[in-house]
C-alpha cells in the first residue's frame, strides 16, 4: 500500500511534470482542438546564445568547487561534532547552523565589501566562496548524521588493526559515509547552481552562471524556449553528480560500488 502510494505520488508530482516539460520544449504552445506542432525552435534559441554554453560550464565548475570545499571542511567538522566531546560543543553546532537563519542579503552585502577589499569581487573564486554560506551548514548537518551512525569503537577497532589515519579513513569511514556524502554533494550542487542574489552581488555580472541568464530569459514569456532552458538547467546538477560519483569511486574503490548494489 505504502509502495503504491509512493509510486503514484512519484508519477503525479515528478514524472508527469517532467514529461510535460520535455514535450513542451519541442512543441509550440498547445491549444485545445489543435494537433501538437513540433518545433526545435526552443532548443535553437537557447543554444544560439553563446553565453548559455559558457554559463553552463561556469555553473558546473563553481558547483563542483563548492561541493568539494564543502566536503573538505564538512568531514572533519562533522567528525569532531559527532565523535568528540569538548566544551561548548552544542553552542558551536548552533553557530555553524546560523548562516541559514541570516537573511541572505545581509550576508551578501557584508561579504561584498570584504570581497572587494580582497580583490575577490567579480571573480569565480569569490562566487565559489560566497556559495559556501548557504551550503556548509547543510553539509555539516548531513555528514554529522552520517558519523553518528558509525560507532566510535568501529574506528578504534580499525586503529587496533594497525590502520593509519588515512587508511582508516579511506577503507572504513569513507565507504560507510558514502550515502551522506552523496546527499551533501547533491545539496551543495543544487543550492550553488540555483543561487541568483549571491552570484549577482559578488559576481557583479561578470561571473555568468545559469541563473544569471535564466531570469532574463524568463521575461521572454516564450513557453517553448523556457522549457528547453529549464531542461538544460537540470543537466548541470545531473552532470555534477555523475562527476562527483566517479571521483568518489576512484577514491573509495570497490567498496563504493558494493554499497550501492547492497541497498
Amino acid at each position: 500500500m505504502k509502495k503504491k502510494l509512493f509510486y503514484i505520488s512519484c508519477l503525479i508530482f515528478f514524472i508527469v511534470p517532467v514529461l510535460l516539460m520535455l514535450i513542451k520544449s519541442v512543441t509550440t504552445p498547445w491549444r485545445s482542438g489543435v494537433d501538437l506542432d513540433w518545433t526545435s525552435r526552443g532548443w535553437e534559441v537557447v543554444f544560439q546564445d553563446s553565453r548559455v554554453i559558457e554559463s553552463m560550464w561556469t555553473t558546473l565548475l563553481i558547483a563542483l568547487a563548492v561541493a568539494l570545499i564543502n566536503l573538505l571542511a564538512g568531514v572533519p567538522i562533522a567528525k569532531a561534532l559527532s565523535h568528540r566531546s569538548f566544551p561548548l560543543k552544542n553552542t558551536l553546532e548552533v553557530i555553524l547552523l546560523l548562516p541559514l537563519f541570516l537573511p541572505i542579503m545581509a550576508a551578501a552585502m557584508g561579504l561584498h565589501i570584504t570581497m572587494i577589499r580582497m580583490g575577490l569581487a567579480n571573480t569565480w573564486l569569490g562566487v565559489t566562496i560566497v556559495h559556501l554560506v548557504p551550503t556548509i551548514p547543510y553539509t555539516i548537518k548531513v555528514l554529522k548524521a552520517g558519523y553518528d551512525r558509525i560507532p566510535q569503537d568501529m574506528l578504534s577497532q580499525g586503529r587496533m588493526l594497525k590502520a593509519g589515519v588515512w587508511q582508516a579513513f579511506r577503507t572504513i569511514e569513507l565507504p560507510l559515509l558514502i550515502p551522506s556524502i552523496r546527499s551533501s554533494i547533491f545539496l551543495a550542487v543544487t543550492i550553488s547552481a540555483g543561487q541568483y542574489v549571491l552570484t549577482a552581488i559578488i559576481g557583479g555580472g561578470t561571473v555568468l552562471t545559469m541563473p544569471m541568464i535564466y531570469y532574463p530569459f524568463l521575461q521572454s514569456a516564450d513557453d517553448t524556449v523556457m522549457a528547453a532552458f529549464s531542461i538544460a538547467f537540470v543537466l548541470i546538477p545531473a552532470a555534477a553528480i555523475i562527476i562527483a560519483e566517479a571521483a568518489a569511486m576512484l577514491v573509495a574503490g570497490r567498496s563504493f560500488m558494493k554499497r550501492r548494489g547492497e541497498v
Binding site: D153, M154, S156, Q157, G158, I172, E262
Partner: peptide, 9 residues
C-alpha cells in the same frame, strides 16, 4: 570489543 564491530561493507 563488546560488539564484534565487523566492518559492514
Amino acid at each position: 570489543f563488546q560488539q564484534a564491530l565487523l566492518f559492514p561493507h
